[in-house]
Nucleic acid binder design. Structure first.
Lengths: 133, 133
DNA sequence: TTGCACCCTGGACCTGGGTCCAGAGTCAAG
DNA sequence: CTTGACTCTGGACCCAGGTCCAGGGTGCAA
C-alpha cells in the first residue's frame, strides 16, 4: 500500500496543505520521495495522521500531540496517562470558567424585561456600573 | 476630572496600547486632544472602557461589544437582551462540546492502568485504532 | 535647565492552526 | 503526444486581540 499525499489526505480526512504543514512542524516525519520529488506514504503514516486527528478532537493542541506521539513511541504509558490527566484538568477548568460566564449571563437575562427604559436593563447596568470588579 | 491615557488605562485595568487599539478599532471614540496632541479622557470614556472590560469577561468578542455599545446608545433593550441570549446560546454550545471531550478523556483515563504494555493502554489505542471516530 | 517619565505615530510582530498562491514540474489515460 | 489532474516549493495571508518598537515630542519638578 503506497499513497500519494492527496490519497493520504483524503483517507485521513484532512487537507493536503495540512499534511505538509504537519510535516514542516514535526508532527509527521519527512515523507519518503519518488525520484520526481513526490511524497509517498504507507500505512504507518496514515495511522499517525489519524492519531493526530483524533487527539485534536479530544482537545489536544499540536504541541500536546507532538509529546503524545513521542511518549507513544517510547511506550511510556504512565506519562501518556499523566498527559491525558493534565488535559482533562484544563478542560475542566475551561468548563468551570464557561459555567461562571453562563450563570452571569443567565442572571442578567432573566432579570431583563426586554423592553422599557434602558436604565432599567440589568444587562446594560451590569456592564456600565461602577460597582464590582 | 481629566485623565491622560496612562491614568485612564490604569483605572480601567488595561494597557495603554489596548486603549489606542480600541480607538483604532472603533470601540472608543477618537479621544479629545491637548494642543500637544496628547489624548485627554473624562469619566464617560472610563465608564465605556470598563463596560468593554466587563463585556469581555462575559465572553463577548470585540465585535459583539461594538454592537452592544451601539445598542446601548440607542437604548434598545430588546436587542441588547437578544444579543445576550445569543451569546448565552453559544457559551452553552461550547460547554456541551467540552463536556463531550471531558467524558471521552475520562473514560480513557479510567480504563488505563497507567503502567504495563503500551498495547494495553486504552488511550494510545483509542488514538491509533482504525475503528475510529 | 536638566532629567525623567510620559506621550505620539505607523507599522511590525505574536500565537495557533492552518489556507492559499504562483509558477513550475509530473503522471497517466486516451 | 496531449491534456487535465496532480504535486512541488517558498512565502504570504487569515483570524482575534492585542503587544512591542524606534524615533521622536512633552510635562513637570527640582
Amino acid at each position: 500500500m503506497s499513497l500519494s499525499i492527496g490519497e493520504l489526505a483524503k483517507q485521513a480526512g484532512v487537507a493536503i496543505d495540512t499534511v505538509r504543514f504537519y510535516e514542516r512542524n514535526g508532527l509527521l516525519a519527512p515523507a519518503g520521495r519518488l525520484a520526481s520529488g513526490y511524497r509517498r506514504y504507507g500505512a504507518e503514516e496514515l495511522k499517525r495522521l489519524r492519531f493526530i486527528r483524533r487527539a485534536k478532537v479530544l482537545g489536544f493542541s499540536l504541541d500536546d500531540i507532538r509529546s503524545l506521539l513521542a511518549l507513544s513511541a517510547e511506550r511510556d504509558v504512565a506519562r501518556v496517562r499523566a498527559a491525558a490527566q493534565r488535559k482533562l484538568g484544563n478542560i475542566e477548568l475551561r468548563i468551570t470558567e464557561l459555567e461562571r460566564i453562563r450563570s452571569g449571563l443567565r442572571t442578567l437575562i432573566d432579570a431583563c424585561p426586554g423592553h422599557g427604559r434602558s436604565e432599567a436593563c440589568p444587562i446594560l447596568n451590569a456592564l456600565s456600573q461602577e460597582q464590582d470588579a
